[in-house]
Design a protein around this nucleic acid. Sequence first.
DNA 1: GTGAAAGCGCTAACAA
DNA 2: TTGTTAGCGCTTTCAC
Lengths: 341, 341
Amino acid sequence: MAAARNGQGDRRPTMTDVAAAAGVSVALVSIIMRGAPGASDETRERVRRVADELGYVPDRRAQKLRQSRSRLIGVAFELQQPFHGDLVERLYPAAAAQGYDIALSSVAPTRNEQAAIGDLIRERCEAAVLLGSRMLAPDLATLAKRMPTQVVARPSGTELVGSVRTDDTAGIEAAVDHLIDLGHRRILHIDGGDAPGSAERAAGFAARMRHHGHASEARVVAGGPTESDGVRAITNTLDTSEASRPTGIVAFNDRCAIGVLDVLLRRGIHSPEDISVIGYDDSRLSRLAHINLTTVAQDADKIATEVIAQATRQIAGEAPTEIILTPQLTPRATTGRAPVE
Amino acid sequence: MAAARNGQGDRRPTMTDVAAAAGVSVALVSIIMRGAPGASDETRERVRRVADELGYVPDRRAQKLRQSRSRLIGVAFELQQPFHGDLVERLYPAAAAQGYDIALSSVAPTRNEQAAIGDLIRERCEAAVLLGSRMLAPDLATLAKRMPTQVVARPSGTELVGSVRTDDTAGIEAAVDHLIDLGHRRILHIDGGDAPGSAERAAGFAARMRHHGHASEARVVAGGPTESDGVRAITNTLDTSEASRPTGIVAFNDRCAIGVLDVLLRRGIHSPEDISVIGYDDSRLSRLAHINLTTVAQDADKIATEVIAQATRQIAGEAPTEIILTPQLTPRATTGRAPVE
DNA sequence: GTGAAAGCGCTAACAA
DNA sequence: TTGTTAGCGCTTTCAC
């Protein structure tokens, strides 16, 4: 058959086709499709109509190739991280407001960051945004020599690479203060293992407990960023410290906190009556009605806006900076007054 | 300053730069970069070295523009669906094996499917793969006139659009059989509300219970695809049928099942001792150690392979087909023998 | 084995 | 207001 591809014809219409059909030059069609000034309203309307009839849609690759700039911001994100989803979603409108498009490149167990970044380079993105990158500072610096680069939700470790993140210390402090306010004293922090931000949060926790004069009642145990890590940490803790178990827990993040809650439930320990639990991220998970987790919220909207703003600045040649936002404690149902002893 | 962008120079090196630096023609560089035959090993090595020194990376837009075909398969996926992440991850290698690249376009609450698909068209993808699309059959048919289209995990409703999915009826039947084998009789199905596949699964459930002669002990209640839906459904059920509560539950999907488990936990009802629960999808969630949910598994690897295979066929002009894979019951920790009454 | 030249679909000067 | 022209960075004949 002549018309392959579901009879859609052998190829998509191009600007040349539209120009021919409308009896004008391609340049004029270009002007009209871009909404640029320099065409009569009458022609404009006619060409638009012809284009629609033909089902013409501009070829973005050709557009971007021709314009010396791609006006593309590349985003590497992890497919399995709900918070990355929250961020990506907000990057689109933020970028559009500055006249940029977003190119997505995913990171997954079978697809490493290098592969994802390679795609962004081949697409000639003008800047790279790495969500929760696991790259080391020297590698980031190398990448930064190729293209303006930022990391999100972690420090970059090099002044060549920008960073937008929330103040981990402040976030953990807010969590500690909240529990102290509620009368808790024996407070446990389950750290993030080798996840980015873990060290800062653990240090912040210890410092704040000291500040309140309860250093001796503070404990930090090894955890990690997933539910399983939370499960492991709390199980260990409960099994080994029956006598003096904590009344308040600050988990590394929401997923970790959810693991903790799950174990508590299974053991018949009620939250918040027996133990208060605080997460970190304000991910969609934490907001689910049945979880309703008190958490330290990172404002995805604000982060996205700052990321795009910094990207355009870096593209314009400004030096990258470290932008630190203040997280917000969001009390929900998993924290309450400390039980009377 | 002359060198904007972190001193990386004003522009990225092009093939012309490499050719000049190596003292050969661009055509030869092209041959070498693509690994095409027609260059001496010696030149090959020298040009490669020069390219590396310059940090040359081919411009994919220019490549794809020049080649009449984009060799791009566009994928529209939902950012917040873990199973979509599983699929996307597997589409990369499957596509690469056929010489295609993947272009990602995300769907989210603030970014609808039309927007996502528009991007795929502008990128001149040769085929569109829509994960869990919510588009109606007529709209899908319209899209199919533009480009070869497939939907995944649902029927397309039009023969113009391909579909790769698992047999919902068979999956639910396997779940029912499993419970029946374990001695369960009073079995509840929490359906998926208006989610794709919900009707098929509910019908399959009823039919299979009838087949086993336990139609009278089968119940179907309204649910949905999220944890909250599961919470709502089971709460209702427990509150209204204290006397004859089910011993087995088949939830619409894993997330729904997890909501159910959460409520059971909170009420001190043990699973599987008191109530067995089965999910659907075998998402990462279900495999978490502390959840360890019995579920009906959809083989993401196989789905991805079939999707790419069908995409290449459709691109070659073949008519789309409906590919139905058989799901696999995966027994884990949330199902066990029915309690003795 | 290598190079010259044309052109993919578009935009942007510049002319008319 | 409209058309002409010259590329963007690459691949692909077709000569040499």
